[in-house]
Design a protein around this nucleic acid. Structure first.
Lengths: 195, 195
DNA sequence: ATCGACTTTGACACTCAGTATCAAATAAGG
DNA sequence: CCTTATTTGATACTGAGTGTCAAAGTCGAT
């Protein structure tokens, strides 16, 4: 069947992307994102420049594609929160996939955030990704069980603010070397709106 | 004196930038940001490609440099708010320079936001700029008259949320063709956190 | 008005990201 | 084994952004 062939192909593609990104990451950290060319990445990975470029639409994607699943995951968590829970606490719980992703291997998460933080191009692209998650979270807020109908704008604002809380918390977490608990930081950021 | 010479030089530089950007803007709107090259911009403006590039570090700057004053302006407004005013309302007032900038000529503001909205590279860069304003706003929150000392994170979160309210409001304003009042939209976004 | 120091300009060359094309290699299915 | 679809790598190209240099322009001082 053609759909199953396509499916296995995508799985293989994903695995290759992960492998290529894994070999590329140390180079970025050592020499700086801007100082590494596709040619070197290809050489280190043992494929041609053409092939490397076919797996990643841009150099930024090599670093940031691993964030892609977070948007859908956060949306799913949000939709699964109980009906009686208020929007703001529900959004707080929806950030769990992000913290889980970075806490899986904290030292690597730290290296990743550090690299992004000192590379403007990566900051910009990650923010772009986050901005793409916001409408989905807002829609999930509208569709959650027990949601009251109303205008869209406040939900967009809440979703955007929640993601911004995540951003500032991660920034602070990375700047302190990861020795504070990430979830406590996010709680602090969130509580700025409730007390 | 060398400082006054330098000052007049910077004024001249700013005027040239404004002029170059003015002639470039219609081209971007007509043909799309990515389809216009520096060579064409230079040709239309009557300067060489080299000169054009010396005035703008990147093509995105040609469109976005006009947002640069907003950060300092918003910070200044925030610092001038009365001591008894709570942080959130004060931040609401601090967004005034942004609305003023776009409402000065609404149809041009609409064209500007439209161009940005349909150009991912411009979205990303503008978000980068906004992200740069956030720490300044947070610092202003800490330094405003009557500020209570405390951890930095909540202030960063508040400042980031305020800017996000601005973003979603402008997005909504642009998507509805500018026929709703911008300040009412921002009020709606802000009130999502107070009711 | 002319000189001399400084700045701006434009021409040129260069690196690298990203796109497109095509032929050879390779894998999968019958 | 053969056919067909996919992947790969080689090559060439456009355009962004950087750097250098010599010519042109600016401005103050004499």
């Amino acid at each position: 069947m053609s759909t199953s062939r396509a499916k296995t192909r995508d799985i293989g593609r994903g695995a290759v992307r992960e492998e290529l990104a894994r070999t590329a990451f140390p180079l970025f950290c050592d020499r700086g994102f801007d100082e590494v060319t596709f040619e070197e990445l290809a050489a280190v990975s043992g494929v041609s420049r053409s092939t490397f470029l076919r797996y990643f639409g841009s150099k930024e994607e090599v670093v940031l594609f691993s964030f892609d699943p977070l948007g859908p995951q956060m949306t799913e968590v949000l939709l699964g929160r109980p009906a009686h829970e208020k929007d703001w606490p529900a959004l707080r719980h929806a950030l769990a996939p992000a913290t889980a992703f970075l806490n899986r291997d904290p030292s690597e998460g730290l290296a990743l955030l550090g690299l992004i933080g000192r590379t403007p191009a990566l900051c910009a692209r990650l923010r772009e990704k986050q901005a793409g998650w916001r409408p989905d979270l807002a829609r999930a807020l509208a569709e959650r069980p027990g949601a009251r109908p109303g205008p869209d704008l406040p939900r967009q604002a809440l979703a955007g603010a929640a993601l911004e809380c995540l951003t500032v918390s991660l920034e602070h977490w990375a700047s302190t070397g990861g020795d504070t608990d990430m979830d406590e930081l996010i709680d602090d950021a969130f509580s700025a709106f409730t007390d």
